[in-house]
Design a protein around this nucleic acid. Structure first.
Length: 467
RNA sequence: GGCCCCAUCGUCUAGUCAGGUCAAGGACGCCGCCCUCUCAAGGCGGAAACACGAGUUCGAAUCUCGUUGGGGCCA
């Protein structure tokens, strides 16, 4: 059975790149009816925090990437790693190293300066422990031969073993390193497919040698290209919002972010829009591209809009409520919000925009745009506003079609363009010159509110005349 | 510095493994037109790419080599 995992380090929020790695793992497991496990790689006690773990879990849940096992915490598995390290030590497949990080760094720099390979020289191999020195444990890489990584995405890659460094598997402070813990955990947890960023590609031959040394089965690997920023460097804070939670706050839909992230490096013919179910059905690792992709916020915005347009207004309204509340709008009424959303769906690209646009429907007194009022709430338009008001007062309710035909009729009678009546009403009702179709707006606001707002505009013009 | 990966419109990509149907298709963005009560949405159209150089071949975006560029790893 297929078993995949996502193994983030809890040193911050869930990054866009991490989310994509998680997504590929999740999709692959779902597609193959396998399981997906979550493992928190918190061996770096200095930088790992509980808040970060919480934030990562929250973001994964929001994206809909549910896991079947875990979360496991590496910090609670230290004795397992130490036992494995001891086993390697006992079998002569690992050795103590007494060099300090500072010494190593210095030697590395020196070798680089001289134009040589910065490879560890094995000076500690087989020596007696020097007094006053703490020991790290190094894995002994075979001198000869080569190690093949048969990557599902990248193909076969061969590494000469003598190019590989004897890597540290346990630090001098007793903390096992990433490359070691990952191998032990993936083996013990029965991971069949390791899907991760290609920044780990160079670690893979070393990890394969560790699997072999430990006598464990080697999983299949799939290294997916990293996401880059506009300047073609690895996506980071410098490039703007990079956390999943930031996009959530900006009003992006999880399914849109998922759709966008998966299309960054994966394709299925010419199809751009995918529901999550479609992705599960169609996802394959074979269609993951080999080259790096640049994060393109404009396309994400477009996709978000597409997902919003296709979402039913009822669901969209539920999602909108918290955004309205942030703008001080409470108890707006379900029905009215749904109606409002109906008129705004094709206009707003994010929930944030939707809430901004929707505001005028719910506030007591619309905020009049200065320029709009100066242009349209003037003595010349006063008669039209009065006529519309009277028209509204005659009818019990507002039927958008009826009111539209009446106003069109009116424009005809006066031999003016509809625009000349529509714009003053628009300013009176919405405060600005841009809004959904004015008759739909009237329908959402309701008869009484329309009359109230038009009255306000009429009074404003009158007071201008007097003043 | 060594090793590893990558290279099609500005961006995401189809096509590359099985060379000819590709004077390179789609999408985002951009520009124009149509629709229109404003703004969107929608419809139609446009500009825009095989990094470079050799080689293999009747024929190369596709195979090989090299160069260049970008990315990554080296507690």
């Amino acid at each position: 059975m297929v078993k995949t995992r996502f193994a983030p380090s809890p040193t911050g929020f869930l990054h866009i790149g991490g989310a994509r790695t998680a997504l590929f793992n999740w999709l692959f497991s779902r597609k193959n009816r396998g399981s997906f496990i979550l493992r928190i790689e918190d061996t770096d006690i200095q930088r790992s925090t509980e808040e970060a773990t919480k934030a990562i879990l929250e973001s994964l849940e929001w994206l809909g990437l549910n896991w079947d096992e875990g979360p496991y915490f590496q910090s609670r598995r230290m004795d397992i790693y130490r036992k494995h390290a001891q086993k390697l030590l006992d079998e002569g497949k690992a050795y103590f190293c007494y060099c300090t990080p500072e010494e190593l760094e210095e030697r590395r720099k020196k070798l680089l300066m001289e134009g040589k390979k910065p490879k560890y020289d094995r000076r500690c191999l087989g020596i007696k422990p020097p007094p006053g020195r703490k020991a790290a444990i190094r894995f002994l890489i075979p001198d000869e031969g080569e190690t093949e990584v048969n990557d599902i995405v990248k193909g076969s890659i061969r590494f000469r073993n003598d190019e590989l460094d004897d890597l540290i598997i346990v630090r001098s402070d007793g903390i096992p390193t990433y490359n070691f813990c990952a191998v032990v955990d993936d083996a013990l947890m029965g991971i069949t497919h390791v899907i991760r960023g290609d920044d780990h590609l160079n670690n893979t031959p070393k990890q394969i040698l560790i699997y072999k040394a430990l006598g464990y089965n080697i999983p299949l690997f799939a290294h997916v290209p990293l996401i880059l920023g506009l300047d073609r460097t690895r996506l980071s804070k410098r490039h703007g919002a990079t956390s999943v939670s930031a996009y959530r706050e900006m009003g992006y839909l999880p399914e849109a972010l998922v759709n966008f992230l998966v299309r960054l490096g994966w394709s299925c013919g010419d199809q751009e829009f995918f529901t999550v179910d479609e992705l599960i059905e169609k996802f394959t690792l074979e269609n993951v591209g080999k080259s790096q992709a640049i994060f393109n916020p404009e396309k994400l915005l477009w996709l978000n809009h597409e997902h919003m347009k296709r979402m039913d207004s009822d669901s969209l309204s539920r999602l909108l409520v918290p955004f309205l509340e942030k703008r001080g709008i409470r108890d707006a009424g379900r029905e009215k919000i749904i109606k409002a959303v109906n008129t705004l769906k094709s206009r707003a690209k994010t929930l944030q925009e939707l809430a901004d646009f929707a505001q005028f429907y719910f506030v007591k007194d619309v905020c009049l745009d200065k320029n709009a009022a100066e242009q349209y709430l003037v003595p010349e338009t006063l008669p039209y506003l009065i006529l519309i008001k009277e028209e509204l007062e005659r009818s019990e309710t507002i039927d958008p079609r009826t009111i539209e035909s009446r106003i069109r009729q009116l424009a005809k009678e006066k031999s003016i363009k509809l625009l000349e009546i529509a714009q003053p009403i628009r300013v009176a009702l919405t405060g600005g010159t841009v809004s959904p179709p004015i008759f739909d707006v009237m329908d959402v606001l309701g008869r009484d509110e329309c009359i109230r707002r038009i009255e306000r505009a009429i009074n404003l013009i009158k007071s201008k005349l007097e003043g």
